[in-house]
Simulated scan of single mutants.
Amino acid sequence: MRILAVSDTESTALWDHYNSNKITNTDLILSCGDLNPQYLSFLVSCTNLPLLYVHGNHDEKYDQTPPEGCICIDDKIYVHEGIRILGLGGCMPYKPGKYMYTEKEMKRRLLHIKHQLIFYRGFDILLTHAPAQGLGDGDDHAHQGYQTFLGLLDKYQPKYMVHGHMHLQYDHSLQRTMQYNNTQIINAYEKHSWEY
């Protein structure tokens, strides 16, 4: 299965200069948040592919204008063709905002989906907006990753964790991909595709 992940910045190659050949053989689109809802709707309408998303810290506009044809998987496990995808959007609070969570609040969110983790026996992809602590996160509070995510990676050993929030131009030392135990960490900034 070929997966395209998008996050934070709308790709001009996909939106302004769309050509169906640019998404050849793609089977699923994942959004890590902070994107224009019309952009996500555009991708779905042009490709006729399923698009799963979580909220970024700038996505309060989705409450009034949700991305049409897309599926929000925040706080749930969604199974697509046998692949279990757990969605946990948001980032650390640095100002008032709906999709910002302290470490304690993120742990509380996990308690609400504990039954899903048991029922599905874990997950294969962790889809988030913020990174895990120490795995491609930033030094400032707004871009600090969650320790809760590290616990999930350690316990369930998913094949992938896909996140956004960390714009690659913030720091040239940021990596697009990295390995953490059995999990490949992918920073989906703008766009990135891979074979599952």
Rank of each mutant, 00 (worst) to 15 (best):
R2Q: 15
I3T: 06
A5S: 13
A5I: 08
V6A: 03
T9N: 12
E10V: 15
E10W: 00
S11I: 08
W15D: 11
W15E: 12
H17N: 13
Y18N: 05
Y18Q: 02
N19R: 10
S20E: 13
I23D: 04
I23P: 01
L30R: 05
C32Q: 05
D34V: 02
S41Y: 01
S41P: 00
V44P: 03
V44T: 13
C46W: 14
P50M: 03
L51Y: 10
L52Y: 13
Y53I: 02
Y53A: 05
V54F: 06
V54E: 04
H58P: 07
D59R: 02
E60Y: 09
E60W: 08
K61S: 14
Q64I: 10
E68F: 08
E68Y: 08
G69M: 10
G69D: 06
G69A: 06
G69Y: 10
C70I: 06
C72N: 15
I73A: 04
I73T: 08
D75T: 09
Y78T: 14
Y78W: 13
I85C: 00
I85K: 04
G87L: 08
L88Y: 03
G90T: 09
M92L: 12
Y94F: 15
P96L: 11
P96T: 10
P96N: 13
Y99T: 08
Y99A: 04
M100G: 09
T102F: 12
K104F: 14
L111Y: 07
I113V: 09
L117K: 11
L117M: 11
I118Q: 14
F119Y: 15
Y120M: 03
R121S: 15
R121F: 06
F123T: 06
I125W: 06
L126G: 01
L127H: 04
Q133L: 13
D137F: 02
D137G: 02
G138A: 11
D139H: 13
D140T: 11
H143F: 10
H143T: 05
Q144S: 08
Q144L: 07
Q147G: 08
Q147R: 12
T148Q: 01
L150H: 04
L150P: 01
L153H: 02
K155F: 00
Y156L: 03
P158C: 00
P158W: 01
K159A: 09
K159Y: 06
Y160F: 08
M161A: 10
V162P: 10
V162T: 09
V162Q: 07
G164K: 09
M166K: 07
Q169K: 13
R176S: 05
R176W: 09
Q179A: 11
Y180R: 03
N182F: 01
T183V: 03
I185Q: 03
N187E: 08
A188E: 02
A188T: 01
E190A: 12
Y196S: 14
